[in-house]
Design a binder for these strands. Structure first.
Lengths: 188, 188
DNA sequence: CGCAGGATTGATATTACTCAACCGTGGTGG
DNA sequence: CCACCACGGTTGAGTAATATCAATCCTGCG
């Protein structure tokens, strides 16, 4: 694969915005990124979480329809869509990446269809663990309660209450800052 | 593109089930299909709606992770994944199809993140209209209230009440059977 | 030390869920 | 041809849950 220009972004920086031109496919090399849209009522809806190795979007032409923001300092490489698709290997690679995104998006749908706040957050935690890597049982979420609320469709208060409850029940134990230890039986 | 075997399915027939082998990519030629998973608690979660022209899944290898059921009588053609990917045109085509699915899935996420029942259903109706084609302003949903509930994460009673309310408010007018006329100002 | 952003907590209101009964309609069989 | 049945849809009352509004508490950082 050919070299691609790499750009660095600080925490909270906008990597791209809705309406930006596609064409160059951004691949996340390090850090964590959220993708979101702005709903009619002004609320943010998080669409996806991306970790190292993930492509942020697949708009080979036309405009991007969502925003990408850095959760942590991160590096992004831009690949020319045309170059990738020119080789069979590149095309297959792209298909696999896209397929993984699709599966992830469906997990997100499944999360949102859970009724209770506890179940939603439990499912979210599992997905976040998969997306952002990290040790088994260790959870490091570079997200605010508001972010989690936007992802799960809850309010930040509901998120807070649930996490606090989990701490009380010793399902979660705060290790340091935003990192927590997940007890064996995290499901519910 | 090479010829592909075509199979017909009756209403309510299972087109494929979770655990079935992938490899052959099923493309819907006519009719309407729902994709869903079974959640831990036994509830169905609808993942997607497919109309004519849509691929039902993109599992080039491994197993499918969801179910596909015919909403109406329909025809499905199976394409060998390997054949499609062999040609650049085929690969590009597949990428576009997959991309469209991804966009749709994100709309689904946006639907589920709406707070109120009314807003969710409004968003759902818009998506369904896009997925299943049909005249502008005309809505023909081959779905039961239960299906819609499973898609939107509501209960069938909530769905029913909302639709009834919309009829009262003359936002929707039943034309015949499951077809309705949508008034101009459907948003809210 | 003081500030600012995030997190927690509490009281109350709103909303959709649950359980349950009833209605309408299309299809089947006598 | 009509009666019945089964399925989907509608409606109602009561409950449980989360949203809302608002105040207060942490904590990292300048």
């Amino acid at each position: 694969m050919t070299m691609a220009p790499v750009k660095s972004f600080a925490k909270k920086a906008t990597i791209y915005a809705a309406g930006d031109a596609g064409g160059a496919l951004p691949k996340l090399l390090s850090g964590a990124v959220i993708l979101f849209t702005i709903l009619a009522d002004g609320r943010r809806q998080m669409l996806d979480l991306a970790g190292p190795g993930d492509f942020l979007h697949f708009e080979t032409d036309g405009e991007v329809d969502h925003y990408a923001e850095a959760l942590t300092p991160c590096e992004v490489a831009s690949f020319k869509a045309a170059e990738l698709m020119a080789t069979p290997d590149g095309a297959v690679f792209l298909l696999e990446q896209m397929h993984d995104r699709l599966v992830l998006e469906r997990r997100h749908v499944a999360i949102l269809s859970q009724k209770g706040a506890g179940e939603r957050l439990a499912a979210f935690v599992r997905l976040a663990a998969d997306c952002l890597g990290g040790e088994a049982g260790r959870l490091d979420l570079p997200l605010t309660r508001q972010h989690i609320a936007d992802f799960t469709g809850l309010t930040l208060e509901a998120v807070s209450r649930t996490f606090v409850q989990w701490e009380r029940d010793a399902v979660l134990t705060k290790v340091r800052g935003r990192t927590s230890q997940v007890s064996e039986r995290s499901a519910a």
